[in-house]
Simulated assay, not measured.
Amino acid sequence: MDRLLANGTVNAAQSGEGPPLFLFHSLLSDRASFDAIVPGLAGSFRIIVPELPGFGRSRAVDGGLAKIADRMAEAVRDAAGGAPAIVLGNGYGGFVALQMAIRHPDIASKLVLADSGAAFSEPGREAFRNMAKVSRDKGLEAITDVAMRRLFAPEFQAQHPELMQDRRAAFLRTDPEVFRAACDALASLDLRSELVAVKVPVLVLVGEHDEATPPPMSHELAAGLPRAELRILEGCAHVPQLQSPRQFLEAIEEFLR
Rank of each mutant, 00 (worst) to 15 (best):
N90Y: 09
R227I: 05
S33Q: 02
V200D: 10
Q165W: 08
L249Y: 01
L5M: 06
A66E: 13
R57H: 14
F248M: 02
E211G: 03
L52P: 07
G16V: 04
D166I: 00
D78F: 01
M217Y: 13
D78W: 01
G207S: 07
P50E: 06
A147W: 05
P84L: 13
V178T: 15
E126H: 04
D115T: 04
S44M: 10
V49Y: 15
N7L: 03
A182C: 12
L113A: 02
A66C: 12
N90V: 06
F152L: 02
M131R: 15
I47P: 09
A66D: 15
R46G: 10
L249G: 05
V146C: 05
L189I: 14
Q99E: 15
E250M: 00
R231F: 09
L113H: 00
D184K: 14
K199S: 14
A69T: 01
Q241H: 11
A228W: 10
A42E: 13
P240V: 02
P20F: 09
R149G: 12
V61F: 08
L225A: 05
H25I: 00
F22K: 04
L151Y: 02
G16Y: 04
D145M: 02
V87H: 07
N7D: 15
L52F: 13
L88Q: 05
E126I: 03
D70S: 12
I37N: 05
Q157N: 04
E211L: 08
T213S: 08
G207D: 07
A237S: 15
L28P: 03
S135M: 00
L225V: 04
G224F: 06
L203N: 08
A169V: 09
M1C: 07
D106G: 13
E229F: 07
F22V: 01
L88V: 09
E220A: 15
L113P: 01
A185W: 11
G54S: 12
L65M: 14
V38Y: 01
V49N: 10
V112L: 06
M100K: 07
S116K: 01
E211A: 06
Q247H: 00
P176Q: 07
V146K: 12
E250D: 06
A169R: 13
H160P: 06
R46Y: 09
E254F: 01
V200F: 13
G56C: 02
R46F: 11
P105W: 08
F248R: 03
K67F: 11
F34E: 04
Q14W: 09
P123K: 11
A187R: 01
A228D: 10
